[in-house]
């Protein structure tokens, strides 16, 4: 790497996170045990899969806050369809829903040119309502979780590695190729770096943005399948607050909120680091809402690091 001499703000931040992690390993018994690590990885794979898609959107210079409530919606749909129709419906319909929602988001942001944060915030609310209406506020359950192949997706193992982790790694490889080695990937970086200049260079910026939202939605649909297969139940607020967790993981990894800079590898680092920190907090026995405070600190810290490393470049 070129700037070995002086650490950038981001490197400092990663160093700080690793330090926290090591301290955690030293003080929290069992944090680094094999069992705990596989469990942790299994848990983060849902966040991870979503984060892969969100990475595209963030590199393109936008935000997608619908992922949390989209996960809720897809999960309740998967669970109810599993018993009512068939497990096959449970693994296909959520993906279609994800795709459709991605298209709607893409339409709002790329075609109508709405502020992505507020527009997806509105969609978040709409999806919440759809999930509520779908479940009528009831919990959705799979009656006999032990008697369906559907459970393999979330609960199975292959050579001691949990299947969700394998799915996450597979999707990570695919998205990394898409982002790093194809023309579309190039165009995502261009659009995020400077949308006007991209248009002037004959890149169809709107299509690129639209596609990014489609990817984000589709991957969230897939994540929902993994989630519902692992839990075998879902509520209309299962994914509540997930959008911020995902966002903190993506930017903790070093993908810039200003757009035009980032990568799948970075996102994986961010997801794993955040997963460890949250896992450590749980192992210490702190309540779940402490994680929110951690997210707050992490986001502000990361954004500060992002700005400090670009000095003067202000997010619009």
């Amino acid at each position: 790497m070129k700037d070995i001499g002086r650490p950038s703000a981001r490197q400092l931040l990663i160093a700080a996170a690793v330090l926290v992690l090591l301290t955690g390993g030293a003080t929290v018994p069992g944090l680094f045990s094999f069992d705990n690590i596989t469990q942790m990885l299994r848990q983060i794979s849902v966040t991870g899969i979503i984060a892969l898609g969100v990475t595209f959107v963030v590199i393109a210079g936008r935000l997608d806050l619908t992922v949390g409530s989209l996960l809720s919606l897809c999960a309740v749909v998967a669970i109810t369809l599993h018993d009512e129709i068939s497990p096959v419906a449970a693994v296909t319909v959520p993906i279609i829903i994800g795709l459709v929602v991605g298209c709607i988001n893409g339409f709002l942001v790329a075609i109508l040119r709405l502020n992505s944060l507020i527009a997806t915030l509105g969609m978040l609310s709409v999806l919440q309502a759809v999930a509520l209406v779908w479940t009528s506020g009831q919990n959705a359950l799979i009656d006999r979780p032990e008697a369906t192949w559907f459970a393999v997706i979330g609960r199975g193992y292959l050579l001691d590695v949990p299947i969700p982790v394998l799915i996450f790694l597979l999707l990570a490889a695919l998205t990394a190729i898409l982002l790093g080695m194809t023309r579309f990937g190039r165009e995502v970086f261009s659009v995020g770096g400077n949308e006007i200049a991209s248009r002037f260079s004959s890149i169809a910026a709107r299509q690129v943005l639209f596609t990014c939202y489609m990817i984000s939605g589709t991957l969230t649909g897939m994540a929902a399948i993994v989630f519902s297969s692992r839990v075998m139940a879902a509520q209309n607020n299962s994914g509540s607050g997930l959008e911020l967790q995902v966002l903190s993981a993506v930017i903790l990894g070093g993908t810039s909120l200003a757009g035009g800079d980032g990568g799948i590898g970075r996102t994986i680092i961010g997801v794993v680091l955040l997963g460890f920190i949250q896992n450590a907090l749980l192992l210490i026995g702190l309540p779940y809402y402490v994680q929110w405070l951690v997210s707050w600190v992490v986001i502000i810290g990361v954004v500060w690091a992002d700005v400090a490393s670009r000095r003067g470049r202000v997010l619009a």
């Binding site: 709002l108 709405l114 502020n115 507020i118 527009a119 915030l121 509105g122 969609m123 978040l124 609310s125 709409v126 999806l127 919440q128 309502a129 759809v130 509520l132 209406v133 009528s136 506020g137």
Partner: peptide, 15 residues
């Protein structure tokens, strides 16, 4: 149940 949906649509409409 419909309230958050109407709210979200209203937000997008306002936008």
């Amino acid at each position: 149940f419909y309230i958050p949906g109407i709210m979200g649509l209203a937000l997008i409409a306002a936008l």
